[in-house]
């Protein structure tokens, strides 16, 4: 069933999951291996599946199965060959990441936020990366990008893409 028609959530098993319906340990391990996010980051959270391969993350624990329109946030898609974190989860938990983070300058960041694909120098892993830019002096995680063949593709969902307003380059009259 697709993400938006089912309202049934099943808590992911503690152990014994498979490739599409992972168990909790596999999820924690994945965040740690891919992005260096310590498992303790999710200590207070539980993971749920709604529609095969759509993993949600919610504060605390709740009765299983759980019927609702939403239970925390969608954090991970595990249906494809490579697991794909969501933009919202990247922004929510990405501050704890230490690896596979690509830093963009502001104009690259604007293009990324608008949904653009851009060639970029990156000699790290290919696949899904966290995308960061400097905001007010410190890095901020913007979301997720897919790096393949020298190009960074924005995976910002259509509904969240924006043309950023920036008046700093406008000349004053």
């Amino acid at each position: 069933m697709s993400d938006d028609t089912s309202t049934r959530f099943d808590r992911v098993p503690a152990t014994g999951g498979d490739d599409v319906t992972p168990d909790r340990d596999a999820i924690l391990e994945w965040w740690e291996e891919r992005f260096g996010i310590d498992p303790s980051t999710f200590e207070a959270h539980t993971f749920w599946e709604r529609g095969r391969g759509n993993i949600w993350c919610v504060y605390g624990d709740h009765p299983d199965p759980f019927e609702a329109e939403g239970l925390g946030m969608v954090c991970l898609r595990t249906r494809g060959r490579h697991w794909k974190p969501t933009t919202n989860a990247a922004q929510r938990f990405g501050h704890a990441a230490t690896s596979n983070i690509i830093h963009l300058d502001r104009s690259q960041a604007d293009s990324y936020i608008a949904g653009g694909t851009q060639s970029i120098a990156w000699d790290g892993d290919w696949g899904y990366l966290l995308v960061a830019t400097s905001v007010a002096g410190d890095p901020a995680i913007l979301g997720v990008g897919q790096f393949i063949d020298g190009e960074l593709r924005s995976v910002v969902p259509k509904g969240r893409r924006r043309e950023m307003l920036d008046r700093s380059s406008e000349s004053s009259p």
Partner: peptide
């Protein structure tokens, strides 16, 4: 809510 990073929300009709 997801944009605001909320994980403590349950949404129901």
């Amino acid at each position: 809510l997801e944009r605001l990073g909320a994980t403590a929300a349950i949404v129901e009709r």
